[in-house]
Computed example of a mutant assay.
Amino acid sequence: MSVRFLARAAAVAAATVLFAASASAETVRISFQRSSTLLITLKTNGELEKRLKPLGFDVSWHEMTAGVIPTMTARAVDIHADVADAVPVFTQAANVDLTYFAKESASPKAQAILAPKGSPIAELKDLNGKRIGVQKGSGAHFLLVANLARAGLSVSDVQISYLQPQDARPAFDRGVIDAWSVWDPYLAQVEAETGARVLADGSNGTSTYKRYYLVNSEFAAQHPQVVRTVYAALQEAGRWVKADRRRSAELLSPLWKGVPVPVIEAITERRSYDVQPVLAEDLATQQEIADAFAESNLLPKAIELKSAKTFDPTAP
């Protein structure tokens, strides 16, 4: 048997093994939204694909164009985009079996209630009877509810319009709504472009604004190492974004439809991007949010956060 034949046979065998490995690779489906800075960074640099390939996984990316809560309740992906603290409360109330596996530490100034430049609305109590835009079930929704209560108002004292950010912005610009409760990058962009004024953000103690990463519970149970790998990549991406703000802003600007680099740097300044495990104290804060929504009749039922599932990606 010739050496050339043996070499050719070995090459064919190696190619067959590689093809079989590729053909048997599973796909982890990951969602993201416009404010998902760390996931967008990983999507762009291909780091997750590189880390998950040795585990036998490819990655498919899915933008949450239909809204955050409908996408999560549909369970069309395995690992969900980072969402504001209020969102998992609504998904739990909808009996969606999700597991918390990471959080970004508090960023209380990264969402706010805005009034247009020149508006007679000067403080929170002036919102009485006004039209306010907000995305239902978002962290900004909780910020609004909490700050109305702080001003001695309830949701019944105002006219709330449930709008996605892409619909709320033109409504805000045209005066169809009198105020807007929203988060970055939309917040920073409308501030920079219109001179909109902040009536309140979470720094007054009403909202810590932590962002949570969740995974379908069945997927976490079956593929814990995938979840750990995603967590480690998120941590590193967060450290890079904070350490190299200019380069990370330059990466995000075209992806955020041309939001100027200085505006993105301002966003990075007030967003923590500090990825950590979810602790019992976090669920206690989540319970406060759930109770506030239940008291305002904004949840279909009261829920107990002690029944929420968590996964510690740092545990051996």
Rank of each mutant, 00 (worst) to 15 (best):
L6I: 12
R8G: 12
A11G: 08
V12D: 14
V12M: 14
A14F: 10
L18A: 14
A21I: 01
R34Q: 09
K43Y: 07
T44A: 13
R51D: 14
G56H: 08
F57A: 00
F57M: 11
P70S: 03
T73V: 15
A74R: 09
R75V: 12
V77A: 04
I79N: 07
I79T: 11
P88Y: 01
A94S: 13
T99P: 04
Y100C: 01
K103F: 06
A110E: 11
L114V: 08
A115H: 06
P120H: 06
I132W: 02
G133R: 01
G139R: 03
A151L: 04
L153H: 12
Q159W: 02
Q164K: 14
P165R: 07
Q166C: 00
I177C: 02
V182S: 03
A192T: 07
L199E: 04
G202D: 11
N204H: 03
T208D: 15
R211L: 09
Y212Q: 12
N216Q: 15
F219P: 08
Q222I: 00
P224D: 10
V241G: 03
S248F: 04
L252A: 14
P254A: 09
I264D: 09
E269K: 13
D274T: 06
I289L: 13
A290L: 09
D291G: 05
F293S: 05
N297I: 01
A302H: 12
E304I: 12
L305T: 15
